[in-house]
Simulated assay, not measured.
Amino acid sequence: MDLSVLKELNAERAARRAAILITDLESGEERLVKEAEDTSADPLAETLAARFRSGKSGRVETEDGRALFLTVHVPPARIVVIGAVHISQALAPMAALADFDVTIIDPRTAFATPERFSGVNLIAKWPQDVLPDLALDRYTALAALTHDPKIDDPALMAALEARCFYVGALGSRKTHAKRRERLLGLGASPEALDRIAAPIGLDIGAASPAEIAVAVLAQIVEALRKRPAAERERSAA
């Protein structure tokens, strides 16, 4: 691989930004496509969008018969859960089985105990004190489950500002209407608030904490795999 291309690729990977290395299998020519750039004019635009969503590498052929190999580099998706609650206890092991990195944040030390969350990255601090270091991004999902505005609201604001691929919040439609008012007061735009999945989870009639966890995880997977092409960041660092 050309060293300049390798340097670019490593920079994207270090910043948790997706990129695809395109290699012409006959000539060996390489080029790097970054998800943070506008690829709408690229002749492989549709294929690239699909590969960014799936995260899968593979061979493709162009309309003029050239064989290319697309090596897809996508950051590992992760889930940040706000609230060490019963739903979180069920969600964490299921999410791990689905290959998500999971972090649970809850300042309430009576709930955030290693005994309740064995083997989970558990942080017993306020979200606003933790999230800047976690560096939320477009490959992060955030689920706010405490039902406590003092804990959930700062986390939701941080997730919206970071353009997390999924932002969900527990609560009824009435609860969410009040939440919208609070977040609008904190400076969130109506368009950003429309991105919050609330009530959280796919509508499968879930009742128990475990069933709600299934609905939440399914909705997160749907958001990851069916998400539209990332909003382009022409000024990306």
Rank of each mutant, 00 (worst) to 15 (best):
D194W: 00
E211P: 10
P127H: 06
V72K: 03
I79K: 05
P114A: 10
Q89W: 02
I151F: 01
S88G: 15
F100P: 05
S57W: 10
P107Y: 11
D148K: 08
R53Q: 14
L21N: 05
I104C: 09
A198R: 04
I82D: 09
R59T: 14
G58A: 11
L68V: 02
A159V: 07
R163C: 01
L186A: 14
S118C: 03
P190E: 02
S40D: 12
R51F: 03
M94D: 06
L186T: 00
K174P: 00
G119F: 06
L145C: 06
P43E: 11
L170S: 05
R59K: 15
V214M: 10
I105A: 01
G28M: 03
R66I: 00
L91Q: 10
A229G: 12
V80C: 11
R227N: 05
A77C: 11
L217S: 07
D64F: 01
L91I: 09
A198I: 06
A18W: 09
D38L: 09
I87W: 03
T103I: 15
I123V: 15
D2W: 08
M157T: 12
G168W: 11
M157H: 03
A223E: 11
W126K: 12
P209T: 08
A236Q: 03
P93W: 04
F100Q: 04
L217A: 06
E231K: 14
R182P: 05
V5T: 15
L91A: 06
R138Y: 00
T39R: 12
D101P: 00
I105S: 01
P127T: 11
P209C: 02
E46W: 02
V33M: 07
D203L: 02
K7I: 06
R227K: 15
S88Q: 02
R195G: 02
A155V: 08
S27R: 11
E29C: 02
F117N: 08
L9C: 05
F100W: 07
A210H: 05
T62R: 12
S4H: 13
A96H: 09
M157S: 13
Q128P: 00
E35R: 12
A50R: 15
E35T: 02
